[in-house]
Design a protein around this nucleic acid. Structure first.
Lengths: 151, 151
DNA sequence: ATAAAATTGAAAATGATTTTCATTTTCAAT
DNA sequence: ATTGAAAATGAAAATCATTTTCAATTTTAT
């Protein structure tokens, strides 16, 4: 993460205007630990600035996603959820543990070494076998969280 | 896979009626190599039997998914896609390679040994660390397929 | 054969996301 | 600082996958 305003520079480089609304949304994404949906982001943004509409939230999320600064996930609860890129947000490489009952999502950073070895080997092999230009991967575990496992 | 009619027995065991419509949908799932969406299944089913409606397709897919016989995936193209369980359909354990440009999905079965080692270790560790009762995992690679990589 | 329970299709409802369009804001060039 | 074209905006309408409702039909246990 260059500095707090890394994104202003990137928007400019891509010919995208800097606006109060986009600043608000990016700040929300930078300051959350959860996996917010567009509507959840809208609710927070709208409290800070009554003039922000849901449409602009969707549009900003799309722009950031297309620039690769943001990642869009579907965890199975019907709405897309977003996370700033690890590099952009200065976070460790992680994946998710998803509770199929309450939809709780845990970010985990364990077993990165094993993961890296496995992913590198698979990626290299699959690229060759299927002539695929691999850009990213996803690993996810599903099950019952602490609170839901006994119910 | 017990035999061709494995599912009749399972439905009965779960108090679910056996109907022509369900038979048609299950046959379609058994005979496809692709990752069909509800609408695609409906189109095929409807050709075979004009009285089948889209609603019943959704309902049957839900039932099979809840019984664990079918798996529901979201690959990012806006509609859920379905695959019969590997055991049920006598297929090898596999994961997916997804083209982010044309949405092509490749099932791959390579590096299973490495995967099993990595997944087992992670699953055991994560279960303990997060007190999670892990039931399944997903591994997926995103990138550009053979046809899209040069465009 | 029969009646209660389960299933069905069509149409309506839902809910997330996208599009439209008239208005407002941004930004580069003055 | 001013300005005007281009980009961004909110509200409302449109879209589209999925779910619900409900009256009619089919299945199943008897």
């Amino acid at each position: 993460m260059p500095n707090k305003n890394w994104w202003k520079e990137i928007l400019k480089q891509n010919g995208i205007s800097f606006t109060k609304i986009r600043e608000t949304i990016i700040n929300i994404l930078q300051n959350t630990e959860s996996h917010l949906s567009a509507k959840e982001i809208y609710i927070i943004a709208h409290k800070k600035n009554k003039s922000i509409g849901l449409t602009s939230v969707y549009r900003t999320l799309d722009i950031l996603t297309k620039l690769g600064l943001l990642h869009k996930f579907e965890f199975g609860d019907g709405e897309a959820r977003y996370e700033l890129d690890e590099k952009v947000n200065n976070k460790s490489h992680h994946h998710h543990l998803v509770c199929v009952r309450c939809n709780k999502i845990i970010d985990y950073t364990d077993f990165v070494k094993d993961e890296t070895d496995f992913i590198n080997k698979s990626e290299k092999g699959l690229s060759k076998i299927y002539n695929f230009d691999i850009k990213g991967h996803m690993i996810r575990f599903y099950g019952f969280c602490e609170k839901c496992r006994d119910k």
